[in-house]
Computed example of a mutant assay.
Amino acid sequence: MSRLQADHLYKVFGRRPEDAVRKLEGGADRDELRAEGTTAAVIDASFSVEPGQIFVVMGLSGSGKSTLLRMLNGLLEPTSGRVLFDGQDLTALSPRALREVRSKKISMVFQHFALFPHRSVLENAAYGLEVQGIARAEREKRATEALELAGLAGWEDSWPDELSGGMQQRVGLARALATDADLLLMDESFSALDPLIRRDMQDQLLELQSRLKKTIVFITHDLNEAMRLGDRIAVMRDGKIVQIGSAEDILVTPANDYVASFTQDVDRSRVLTAGAVMADPGTVLGTETAEGTVLRTAQDVLDAAPATVSADAPVIELFTPCSTSGAGVAVTDAEGGLIGVVPRERLLAVLGEPMTPETDVVPVPAQTRKEMTAGA
C-alpha cells in the first residue's frame, strides 16, 4: 500500500469554487476562471508516494506546489478530491481527528525555520512532543537524540540567534524527527540558505534518509535540488502536474518543451546512470574491436570492455574508460552478468541531447541475458 496518495485534488480560491472545478473538468483553463474572479491553484493532481521514498514536487512560483503540500496534511481543505494516508481518507476526518494525525504522524519543515526565539535549541526541538503532551524527561530525551541525528549535539542549551542559518534549519529538521512522524513534508526547506550551506543540508537529509527511511514530500523550485534528492519527481506548471518520473526520466525523456527547458542547465553526467544510457548488448555482437577481436558472445564483450560498472553508476564515471578504449564500457548486474554496453559515441550523444525514440534504451530481457552468458 502507498504511504500517501493524492486522488484528483483541486483547490480553487474565489467565488463558487465547486462550479469552477466542474468547468475545469469540462476543459476550461486557468485564464478563463481568472476572468470570472476565481483562481485555480491546483488542478486535478494525482500521485502516490511509497514508504521510505523522497517524492519531490518541483515548479516555479505560482505553480501550485505549496498549495498542494498544504492539502496533504489538511492545512488547506481540497475543493475536490481526496488525500489518503496509510489508506485513511484525511479529507473525511473531523477537525479533531485531523489534528491528532498531524501532531503524531505528519511533521512539517518550513522554509523560514519557524523557531521560537525565547526557547533554547533543545526546547525548540522538543516542541512537537510538548504539543502531544509527552512528559518533559521523555521529550527532552527524544529531542536530544534528534538533535544528534541532525548534527547538533552539544548545542542543546544555545539560543536560535546564536546559530547560523543552516544550523537553525537543522533544528527545524530535528523538531520534525523528534516526533518520529511517518511522513515529513518539507516546503522549500533549504531555499533560504546560501548555496554551500544548502548543499550541506541536502547531504544531511540524504544521510538521515539512508538511516531512517522516512517518507518525505519535498517542495522546491530548483531542478538540481529535485534531481539530487528525489526518488521520484513531479513537475508542476499552472496548477497541473505535467510529468512524474525519476530524475533520469525527466532528464532523458521530458514530457514537453516546458519540462525540457528546465533540464538545459543540469549536469547530465551526474544525474544519468549507466543503466539509463546503456545500449542492448546485442547491438555490439558481431562487431570488431580496434584490436581485431570479433565480439561473438557476452564474455567477448566483457573481455574487451575497458571497465565494467553497475547500472546505477553515474555517467561521469564512464568518461575515463571510454576515452582510453574504443570498446564500450560493460554494464553488469549483481551476479556479473552483462546487461548493457555504453559505447563512446552513445555516451557523447546522450550528454548532448534528450534521447529520441531511436536512441532510447531497450531493456534486455532476463532470459536473453542468461542465454548470452551461457553462450560465453
Rank of each mutant, 00 (worst) to 15 (best):
D7H: 13
L9H: 04
G14M: 05
P17D: 08
E18R: 15
K23Q: 15
L24M: 03
G26S: 15
A28F: 06
E36H: 02
T38Y: 01
T38W: 05
I43S: 03
D44G: 03
D44W: 04
P51W: 05
P51R: 13
V56Y: 04
S61W: 03
S63G: 04
K65H: 02
G74L: 07
L75Q: 11
L76K: 01
F110T: 08
H112T: 09
F113V: 04
L115H: 10
G133L: 07
R136A: 15
R142M: 13
E145S: 12
L147H: 03
S158W: 12
E162H: 13
E162Q: 15
M167P: 12
L177A: 06
A178L: 10
L208T: 08
Q209L: 06
S210Q: 15
R211D: 04
R211F: 04
L212K: 13
I216Y: 09
G230K: 01
I233R: 00
V235R: 00
I241R: 08
T253K: 14
Y258N: 07
Y258W: 09
V259D: 05
Q264D: 11
D265C: 01
D267I: 03
R268D: 08
R270F: 00
V271K: 01
L272V: 01
M278H: 09
P281G: 13
G282H: 14
T283C: 10
G286A: 14
L302P: 10
P306I: 08
T308N: 01
T308Y: 00
A311D: 07
V315T: 14
I316F: 13
L318A: 02
F319S: 13
T320K: 11
T320D: 14
P321K: 09
T324F: 00
G326C: 02
D333K: 05
E335A: 15
G336T: 09
P343V: 00
R346P: 03
L348P: 04
L351H: 07
E353Q: 12
T356K: 07
E358R: 14
D360L: 14
T368Y: 06
R369H: 00
K370W: 04
